[in-house]
């Protein structure tokens, strides 16, 4: 694997070919906010929080998601431009209205000085980052949870048949959920006619 050199926030950074801008930045100690990224999982590029501005030579700069865009020789990356910040703030405000209880979002909101009153709260608790979905599919290879629906009605759901078999002895996705909504989502799935064993990790949600 050959190395490429690029500039991130005026700092020369070396990275292996095939790595993403996000990985290159983080390895150089430059922090970029993320919500749907997880180092063990295929990037989904959906929260758009990791968006950065790139340019090359005389070409006009453009916005790309750093969790997907791969490093290129000579690329100039800025992670905190005005354009980028403006979008991140809006994204955080949009998400806050959906998951006002999420600590991760609160922390980012504080960091970016976001006015949380922008949108009226209409909470569905989940931000659809898909970490649980990918974790279950890629790491656990169980596919007990997935996306259903599209547009504003998109949701994450446990598939009862698989979940009844797999989730009680696992529960690992709950730990990576940034909003903490999964346990209740799971509880809803535990429809009465499944007589599930008590979950060893989260017994409090399995009170019969």
């Amino acid at each position: 694997m050959s190395k490429v050199t690029l500039t991130i926030n005026d700092k020369k950074v070396q990275a292996e070919e095939g790595t993403t801008l996000l990985e290159a930045a983080r390895s150089a100690g430059i922090e970029i906010p993320t919500l749907c990224y997880h180092e063990k999982l295929t990037p989904q590029g959906s929260c758009r929080l990791c968006t950065v501005e790139i340019s090359r030579g005389q070409q006009p700069s453009r916005l790309v998601t750093s969790c997907i865009y791969l490093v290129e020789e000579g690329l100039v990356v800025q992670t905190e431009t005005e354009r980028v910040i403006k979008g991140r703030k809006m994204i955080l405000q949009l998400l806050w209205a959906r998951a006002p209880g999420s600590q991760v979002i609160r922390d980012y909101a504080v960091k970016y000085g976001v006015d949380r009153e922008k949108f009226e709260v209409s909470s569905n608790f989940c931000i659809l980052c898909g970490l649980c979905v990918r974790y279950c599919a890629e790491v656990k290879k169980k596919n007990a949870i997935g996306f259903v629906g599209r547009g504003s009605d998109r949701q994450v759901m446990f598939y009862p048949e698989i979940a009844a078999q797999e989730c009680p002895q696992c529960g690992e996705c709950w730990k990576i959920c940034p909003t903490g909504v999964l346990p209740s989502n799971y509880a809803i799935t535990r429809v009465p006619h499944f007589n599930w064993p008590v979950n060893p990790f989260f017994p409090q949600y399995d009170g019969k």
Partner: peptide, 18 residues
Amino acid sequence: LSEESCGKCVPCREGIYQ
């Protein structure tokens, strides 16, 4: 569009919703 968006990315899904 709010019904036809795939709903994957935040700006499209939540932005159109608002």
